[in-house]
Amino acid sequence: MTGAVHRTWAWMRVGVLALLWGSTFLWIELALDALTPVQVTISRCALGSAALLIACLGSGRRLPRDARTWGHLLVAAFFCNALPFAMFSIGQQTIDSGVAGVLNATTPLWSVLIGVLSHSERGLRPVRLGGLLLGFTGVVMIFAPWQMTGPVGWGAFAIVVGAASYAVGFAYIGHNLVGRGIPTISLSTAQLIAATGLTALTLPAGGLTPIEISPKTLIAVVILGVVATGATFHLTYRIIAAEGATNAATVGYLLPVVSVALGAIVLDEGLSPRIVAGMVVVLVGVGLTRRAERPPSVPALAEAPAAQVPSRT
């Protein structure tokens, strides 16, 4: 395969993943028409884990067996799946899907901040520091605490908590689940199974409400679980395996564009000048923190050993 063809396929894969990730917020919005946040969360975890379990067993792979790995997976499942999935569903009750997608893109900002606080960042460069401050300034512009009170304000806060939760989970996974010789499909499947178990514990908090679901909502829930959760969760690994972390990170820049576009086109969501300006500031800030970052060394993600880099929605 020539270099040009390889690059074309690489960008096509990145584009597909960005479309799938970015559409997550649309499917959540549609699912919330008939389901409670708890029901949306457990549905996407259960359907995603079922889809991956079929793929895992079909490929002849097995789930991890040792208790230590499952212990780490439970922690990862909480911070990378159960908590952020719940926060997005709660937040999107009052926040448009496009804005939710942009606030989700702040995860790299939280990752940098966690690195600084944990002293894992070696000498935060001025450009990255500027990007960090600029990015959070954009969040404040979108959040607008001087305007957004009550349900809307709490909705924006929930989305930000979900984005920060991803950053915590990534840091934990980097220390405890990377390069352990476990196939990527096994890790991703096991983590979503663990997330399903965790979210099942929240069923008494709105998960037992009677459901009257329309065909449109049912389709949205299935796509959210099987495609936007299960498929993207594993597709992320494959892109990193083929193109490395740099191309995978590019999805983070495209995701908000997709979520905003789908929200405006499909759901007719309006955007005020303040929110648009905040979105631009957030993306510029994220870009500065990523651009000044030295490319990390990424091990090959063959079937074994494998690195665990979870999905971000």
Rank of each mutant, 00 (worst) to 15 (best):
G15Q: 03
G58A: 02
T189W: 03
L255Y: 02
L203Y: 04
R274W: 07
G138I: 04
M12L: 14
T232S: 15
P108S: 04
R65I: 10
T8M: 11
A300Q: 10
R68W: 07
L301R: 11
R180F: 01
V16P: 06
V222F: 13
F233W: 14
M148K: 11
T24G: 15
W154D: 06
S89F: 09
S259V: 11
A164W: 00
H234R: 10
C80K: 03
S311G: 13
P296F: 02
W9Q: 10
G285V: 08
T184C: 05
G135A: 04
T107I: 06
S259H: 04
L109P: 00
P64I: 08
T196S: 15
G15W: 02
V152M: 04
V257K: 03
S272H: 08
A300C: 03
V280Q: 05
T41D: 01
S214W: 01
S214Y: 03
V280E: 07
L73P: 00
S111I: 12
I114L: 12
V280T: 14
R128Q: 15
E243Q: 14
T313W: 11
T209A: 15
L129E: 07
S297T: 09
G130D: 11
I240N: 09
V16L: 15
L218F: 11
V260F: 05
K216M: 12
W27P: 02
G60T: 10
P183G: 08
G3L: 13
A100C: 07
V222S: 08
A300R: 10
T24V: 03
V40I: 03
S186R: 00
K216E: 13
P295F: 03
G179Q: 05
G155V: 02
T184M: 12
T229C: 08
V5T: 11
I90E: 13
V160D: 08
L52K: 00
A67K: 12
V309D: 06
G287A: 15
G115V: 06
V99H: 04
Q308Y: 14
W110D: 02
V38C: 08
N81R: 04
